[in-house]
Amino acid sequence: MTLKATFIGLTAAAAMAAPAFAEYPDRTIELTIPAGAGGGTDTSARKLALLLEEKLGTSIAILNVGGGGGSVGASQFMQAKPDGYALFATWNSPLTTVPQVQDVAYSLDSFTPIASTSETAYTLCVKADFPVTTGADFLAELEANPGKYTYGNDGIGGTMQLAAERIFQAKGIDAVAIPFGGAGETLQNFLGGHVDIYGGSISTVLPYVESGEAKCPIVTSAADVPALEGASGLEALGLADKETLLWRAILGPKDMDPAVVEMLANVIDEAVNDPSYVEFLATKGEVPNVVKGDALGARLQSEYDALAEVSKALGL
């Protein structure tokens, strides 16, 4: 196999790339997910894999490698062969946030960006009896009471915490971060009154906003989120540049064949915009968002740089 690969490299690449491309994919693709089964990333990736299987005409085997906030899966995947049969379905945190707080073996250069798939914002919510309701009042209340309120988040140095701290830093707010194992656990402690503020994904808390038990003053995207009527986007609060999103993407190992990358990116684009997938995303409060190839690389880099600034200021 390696002999063959070197041979391809040596002869006129353009001429050989076409047949290699035509053959692809002729066997099972292994899709690594850096999170346990059943979570948001896992569900989105599995649903997408079904559509991709259909469009690529090959089967996709899924491997969940959880742990370390995604860094275990990312480190393991980084060593895969760039032959197009190993793909990585992740959310942004293992690539842009985790390296800020952990000493990881990979960097953005260890991967070939293929395409992003969907995105959503995080939200901060309070119980219905919280004294204020609007985004501006909420921030003012927190600012006026330094150290009084606790907010649950998805784990120390996680994207959710950084998203909140970016806003808090801009406003000089001091709130106590309580890290939990995930949005479900945060919700449980929020509903039970063990923490004052819920910080996490929109879909998890949405049922309680609809039932009137919780209200969400803020989302971490620049624009408002239609599903959360009362919540202010950051632009309305004059903090548009502090936007932090949760988004998902599919990547490959370093040095993948550009022809394969382009082909995969187009297929992913089609699959993500398939009406059944768009509808599925809507139930989770996500919207399709496809950024391909090098543009995706640039997006990762700029997010990485912005978060590096926050985490340095936080002393993480």
Binding site: A37, G38, G39, G184, L187
Partner: peptide, 27 residues
């Protein structure tokens, strides 16, 4: 009843329900 999965199997059941357009939670 709450949309809070207590273990991985429960999380998988919830994600199966969301895929069918159901929203886990009190309703």
């Amino acid at each position: 009843a709450l949309g809070i999965p207590g273990n991985v199997v429960a999380a998988l059941v919830l994600s199966a329900l969301t895929i069918h357009g159901l929203q886990p939670g009190p309703q």
